[in-house]
């Protein structure tokens, strides 16, 4: 039987490059901040701050950038949630919620 899902399939069922990292179905978070970054994006989207597709496109762009970085500088592979965080900052910037990347501050 299929129970009604409590999650947004647009997020949970992404395929291709943006697909959420899973290990046999279970979501994989390597560090606590990755969970927080995941939650922030999902919560803000749920509350209508931006469209998921907007975020997804930014995520894909961030991944492409991350890949180029890896290839050209012999950099370590950039993690999925690093790119996620970059995409979230970009999306919030695009929507005027934060201003220019890292310049937001509560100080």
């Amino acid at each position: 039987m299929r129970a009604r899902r409590a999650v947004d399939p647009e997020v949970a069922d992404m395929t291709g490059a943006a697909e959420l990292p899973r290990r046999s179905g279970d979501l994989v978070f390597h560090e606590p901040w990755e969970r927080r970054a995941f939650a922030l994006a999902v919560a803000l989207n749920r509350d209508g701050q931006f469209e998921w597709e907007e975020f997804r496109q930014n995520l894909i762009s961030a991944m492409e950038l991350g890949q180029r970085k890896t290839h050209t500088r012999n950099h370590r592979r950039v993690g999925y949630y690093e790119q996620w965080l970059t995409a979230l900052e970009q999306t919030l910037d695009d929507n005027g919620i934060i201003i220019s990347g890292n310049r937001y501050s509560t100080d």
Partner: peptide, 17 residues
């Protein structure tokens, strides 16, 4: 990265988002 995420979270909490 943890610090960057926490800073963003603090900011969004403060803004009530």
């Amino acid at each position: 990265l943890a610090e960057r995420t926490a800073r963003l979270e603090d900011y969004l909490v403060e803004k009530g988002l």
